[in-house]
Simulated assay, not measured.
Amino acid sequence: MKPYESYTVEDFLEDESFRKWVQGQGTQEIFWLSFLDKYPGCRDTFRQAEHLIRAANVDGERLSEKEIRAEIERFIEAVGGKEDHLEISFSDDDEESGRTIFWKRWLMAAAAVLVLGAGIGWYYYQNNASAPQLAANTASPANLVTTRNDTSKPLVIHLNDGSEVTLSPKSYLSYPSEFADSARVVYLTGEAIFSVKKQGQTFMVHTGKVVTKVLGTRFVVSAFDDDRNITVQVQTGKVSVYVDKPLEKEVKGLIITANQAAVFEKSANQLSKTLVENPEKLPNGAVENILKYDEVPLPVILRDMEKSYGIPVQFDADSFWACKITVAFSDESMYDKLSILCKTVSASYEIVDGQIVVSGKGCSK
């Protein structure tokens, strides 16, 4: 058993299993996800090492000792450092693996840069020609850590406020290593699931022209550069979505709740509200099951559905009250349930502004 309780930042960086887990490539995900529950005293070193690895999105074989020294000296000169010369030496007879040698070298290089007061994410982002640039409308401030997911699997990012971001492949997120007291602001290109920890500060996600603003909830943002739309889908809680127009005094937006989605059409510069593709029942919902009804008025079933999924359902209660329904549902989706109910009473439904509207002649008394 490794002495995890006494692990330093360097120990984490040298641990191949830890590095692979941070990069979304490991097979010990359960162990590392529960690591801080077992070793809470390692939280600071664990997070520091995690941020350093995410910022160091670089192939170790490409960096020689000479290249590391040259890059650091060039960085010092660029930022106006007072050091006349910086020496970094390594032992040529190191018996450890080449990968471990790289991480030791990278840690020393990172430390040298951090001593100068610059974030390691900024350093590598500025010097890595292959790193994608944030879109002009997503201009983010300096000194942010930029995490890219170049793997084929979702990558989990733990922010310092306790929030969690699951970054989809071909996506990247820029965020401060420590949030300011006034607000928590991140910048996304691609797709990510956000589980935001509720705090006093607002949490804001910038994606091109669209800003998603929350206090604490779970939602999905999809904002790939090549897509025609930017979408925000809420799984739990409530968020506000608006188009960022700093030159206009009035900023119009939408409030969306569970199972609703905001869609920004780039070509039309228009924001609209709809429902998610596959609504899920709310956790701890007022109605646990919508399964079996025996001669129950349709309005009662529709209200149960409204409470179960958290989606407003509009209909003429007087017209449909005489429609008595006998039905047994199993694992049908919400839309399938609606279709079955509507066919039973010769009605129809449509999605309007994030709501379900059921229309029809109703039933004779």
Rank of each mutant, 00 (worst) to 15 (best):
K104M: 14
I351G: 07
C42I: 01
V58M: 12
E29Q: 14
L282W: 01
G162Q: 10
N284Q: 10
G200K: 08
P154A: 00
T326Y: 06
A192V: 08
G119Y: 04
V220Q: 14
K281A: 11
V313R: 09
E191L: 01
G253R: 09
E65W: 05
S34Y: 08
E61Y: 09
I53G: 05
D161A: 04
K365S: 03
V358Y: 05
S182W: 14
T8M: 10
N149E: 05
R54M: 09
E5L: 02
D94H: 09
E83I: 10
E248Y: 08
E280W: 02
N284V: 01
E71F: 08
D84K: 15
E29M: 09
E29W: 12
R54D: 00
P40I: 02
V358G: 08
F35E: 11
S64C: 12
T236P: 00
K361T: 10
W122C: 09
L173H: 07
K82C: 07
E16S: 13
V345L: 03
G237D: 08
Y4H: 12
F35C: 11
K343S: 12
Y187D: 04
T189E: 14
S17Q: 14
G81M: 08
S91Q: 11
P3I: 03
S130K: 15
G119D: 15
K238N: 02
D181F: 14
A286Y: 03
T212R: 04
I255W: 07
A111C: 03
F264M: 10
L86I: 15
G237W: 04
S168I: 00
L338F: 14
L282H: 08
Q235M: 09
P312D: 00
L291F: 07
Y242H: 12
A317I: 12
S130N: 13
R105W: 08
N259S: 06
V185Q: 11
F35H: 12
V300P: 03
E61V: 11
D92E: 13
V22W: 03
V196T: 11
Q355I: 01
Y125A: 11
L159F: 02
K170Y: 15
L282Y: 02
S163M: 07
Y349M: 12
P176G: 02
T202F: 08
M305E: 00
T146N: 14
E248M: 13
Q199F: 10
